[in-house]
Write a protein that binds this DNA or RNA. Structure first.
Length: 265
DNA sequence: AACGAAACCTGCGCGC
DNA sequence: TGCGCGCAGGTTTCGT
């Protein structure tokens, strides 16, 4: 599922739903999802605030921080009935309602940290800044010293965080940069363009509640950014700028979509 | 250092 | 109707 806009959408929902609430207890239906030790540590903890960085959601508790990553299909929702749905793997019980974690592919992860370790140990210690607050020079230097493809670099969360496959395709299109170009071929001005368009695309997607392509929902609701996508998933369709057929090509195992004319090599 | 492939899982759409 | 294949918003690990 989610990239930064979807994660922010989920975070905003969680803030209104469970901030200030006390976790009475937690039920785990799929043991690989959350260890018994982790589950037991959550009992009685208050959720003070919820934040996010990149694609991670962080529940700030009394004694710990709970780090949640939704990977491809993780979602949170407040059930309207007691009926357990397929793939409800973790249930957080509050005084008068439940919060469910549902994940079709079971890829999502939970990690519990003592507060002093949250940002100094993996995974968050390795995470680069988001496009909103990344230092442009640091970003340019990271690209400049690499001979990996720019598409691959945008997906590397230790270089810039929050961008996934959909938005990487959109950002490169708006920046008029071919996904196969190497990091060390990217000019300073182009690197600035990437940051500028990243901020623009991510903000617009956040305003529309994220992108729902297959199964992403937030508390059961879809996002509407899919209608704004320019190239992602548009193989053989005309480029919205020049009309050339959009190319679909696998780069480092991920499907890339781009216009061969607007995004020259 | 960097790439491809596989692994972790399930479900959907497609061609036959 | 069923089967096999490829594909999906992510990340880690392993072999080359």
């Amino acid at each position: 599922m989610p990239e930064l806009p979807e994660v922010v959408t989920v975070k905003n929902f969680l803030k209104t739903a469970v901030e200030g609430r006390k976790i009475e207890h937690v039920q785990v239906n799929y043991s690989k999802m959350m260890s018994a030790l982790l589950k037991n540590s959550l009992t009685g903890q208050y959720i003070h605030t919820i934040s996010s960085k990149g694609k991670y959601i962080i529940f700030h508790l009394d004694d710990f921080d709970l780090i949640s990553h939704l990977r491809m299909e993780g979602k949170y929702y407040i059930p309207k009935s007691k009926e357990i749905n397929k793939h409800d793997h973790v249930i957080f019980y509050f005084k008068d309602f439940q919060l469910r974690y549902n994940d079709t592919r079971k890829f999502g992860t939970f990690e519990l940290k003592y507060k002093k370790d949250t940002y100094t140990t993996k995974p968050l210690s390795l995470l680069a800044d988001e496009p909103f607050d990344i230092d442009p020079n640091t970003f340019y230097q990271a690209l400049h010293k690499s001979n990996r493809k720019i598409k691959t670099l945008l997906l590397d969360q230790t270089i810039i965080s929050g961008i996934g496959n959909i938005y990487a395709n959109e950002i490169l299109f708006l920046s008029k940069i071919n996904p196969n170009r190497l990091g060390n071929q990217i000019k300073k001005g182009e690197s600035s363009k990437i940051i500028k368009h990243s901020i623009k695309v991510l903000n617009e997607a956040i305003m529309q509640g994220g992108t729902t392509l297959h199964t992403f929902t937030n508390n059961g609701e879809v996002g509407y950014f899919a209608q704004s996508l320019l190239v992602h998933g548009k193989a053989l369709k005309p480029c919205p700028i020049c009309g050339t057929k959009i190319i679909k090509e696998k780069i480092n195992g991920r499907m890339s979509y781009y216009c061969p004319v607007c995004q020259k090599e």
